[in-house]
Design a protein around this nucleic acid. Structure first.
Lengths: 348, 348
DNA sequence: CTGAAAGCGCTAACAC
DNA sequence: GTGTTAGCGCTTTCAG
């Protein structure tokens, strides 16, 4: 004979632990204990309280709890925009792992010209326990504010010469160098770089590594165009580059999205064969890079590793701000030519 | 002579309004007023207080405020996963618009087999003022719980025959019908449907509209395979379908991602020409659908409209739960053949 | 315009 | 085990 639980036809907006206490004939603190894992309470009392609570539609108020515990369990995540296909994956994995660690994610983004500082100040008001910032840079002023507040900030895929912030990124310089080597080894001679936002450290480092390595091996970058990380920009830039006289025969794009646009334009608009006429390499290794129509050669960012490092900082509240750089992998697919052992070429 | 503001080398973790009050020589409530837009306070007092607050690194505690105001300004967003390329865009637009309306987003996701109810209960504890749930369905029990708590739930791209939840989706049935018409008008005869998760309303409605319309015009669906909304599934299903005897000559895929996989397989693995040998249509109109290598014909979901409807519900706390269905658009690109005016074909 | 006081709903000692 | 109590940091009457 289970008794039908009575349910108020219209719950009075906010049921509090007091209401539950009264209905269950216990004190309010017993209700509190019933909901806390290690609260000293008789098993049967807890059971009864929990039952009453459910009947009444009671849910502990996390705001009240956080206030007294001085602990919100909220982590702020700020991503400029999710339009780089890598970030949705990052956000999802991140959210899932934080959830597993009992944390909630407060998600922020900023549209172009948006006030980043205002966003960060809001995060501060919600007392986030950590803040991860991706694809965007914060002012060193705000970095200091967070530092003063004792809230760790970790820059994802970006860094700042600021002792107050953590930064985890992949080895963008090494990635650029790998691409240079691949091009050189395959016998290319005219190199171009299609970049993303010119004032991002990722863009800067990828280009830097590329150029440096070219130079080290006696070659040089012929063209460099930079604007943003979009497919459309890849198309425009490639069109411009490939339709001129003495076009490049090797294109390094600062992101896969750019590379995909460049690839489409090279083939469809310029009637070029890839990689026979022009080789194209991207950066990131987003899902679409492996799609059959593209089979894009690219530099893979080890997202999982970067995530793990970020979580380590956040969850263990790592002592000193540290700058982590994880290694990248060159993924050869169909948009680059096979390498010619350079020894043999030079031998004569 | 601007005076250098003193900054404590190490702020004592939490600066409260009391600290500011003391330092500014005012009462705590004045500090509170200084930070509230319509607080009655002398302009110069406010200025001074704000100055002191900044020096001390004070940030109002949103938790304390929410507690007393009974208002968190947090909206919960639960998306199964961001792997449908439409959702990152949705989340971003949504976050931006909520931000403009002074709301924060608490983001949740559930991995396969995850406990949705637990997620929702957590959202309840954080007193979200509204909950939007995308690409996933909640139990009618939780729908009731939210209803009792007076928190509007809006299902995005899904619906439930539950009087307690709002639902906004596009006209999936009409979309399916449009595809049937396009295929029929172009003279196709053997139709296949590659679906996503079989137990989703979107999948059901798209397929339903497609089948119904075929039947209405005297045709029939030859094959239907359903599994999930991924590129890989599109590849596998298409491979299976197209490599058998009497293969379909028209493929309707329940999402663009599936269609892209099918398209790649049809061309690269099966050596088929699209649309000459087989026509392929997707659903969603994600960015990649318009990429030159694909030029996928698809049914476009008016994301902006759906977003606007969702926001209307949340921000205006719309009275009665309502079910909104917005119209879709058929976008003809390169994976379908031109239509033959049906009158002429049948005329003889 | 400013200050004092009463909670918002909860946890965490502290007694019993 | 359970009840009592004192706040967590803030907004909001209500006096002055």
């Amino acid at each position: 004979m289970t008794q039908q639980r009575k349910k108020p036809s219209k719950a009075p907006a906010n049921v509090t632990s007091h209401d539950v206490a009264k209905a269950a004939g216990v004190s309010q603190s017993v209700v509190s204990r019933a909901f806390s894992a290690n609260g000293k309470i008789a098993p049967e009392t807890r059971k009864r309280v929990l039952g009453v609570a459910q009947d009444l539609g009671y849910h502990p108020n996390a705001f009240a709890r956080s206030l007294v515990q001085q602990r919100t369990r909220i982590v702020g995540v700020l991503i400029a925009r999710l339009d780089n296909h890598l970030y949705p994956k990052v956000l999802d994995a991140f959210t899932a792992q934080l959830w597993a660690a009992g944390r909630q994610v407060m998600y922020f983004n900023v549209d172009d010209g948006g006030d980043i500082d205002k966003v960060l100040r809001t995060a501060l008001q919600y007392r986030v326990e950590a803040m991860v910032v991706a694809s965007i840079t914060l002012s060193s002023h705000m970095a200091e504010v967070f530092c003063d507040a004792g809230i760790p900030v970790v820059l994802f895929n970006r860094y700042l010469d600021d002792p107050n912030v953590h930064a985890v990124s992949c080895d963008n310089v090494a990635g650029g160098r790998m691409v240079a080597d691949a091009f050189l080894d395959a016998g290319h001679t005219r190199f171009a770089f299609i970049g993303g936002h010119p004032d991002t450290s990722t863009n800067h480092d990828r280009k830097g590594g590329f150029m440096t390595r070219l130079k080290e091996r006696g070659a040089a970058l012929s063209y460099a165009l930079e604007k943003d990380y979009s497919y459309d920009w890849g198309r425009n830039a490639a069109h411009h580059l490939l339709s001129q006289k003495g076009p490049p025969d090797a294109l390094f794009c600062a992101s896969d999205l750019i590379a995909l646009g460049a690839l489409d334009t090279a083939r469809a608009e310029c009637g070029l064969r890839v990689p026979e006429d022009v080789a194209i390499v991207g950066f990131d290794d987003i899902e679409a890079a492996s799609w059959q129509s593209y089979a894009l050669t690219t530099v893979q960012q080890p997202v999982d590793l970067m995530l793990a490092e970020t979580l380590a900082v956040i969850l263990h509240k790592d002592s000193q701000p540290k700058r982590v750089t994880v290694p990248v992998t060159f993924v050869e697919r169909g948009t680059t030519r096979p390498r010619v052992p350079s020894g043999e070429v030079v031998a004569l």
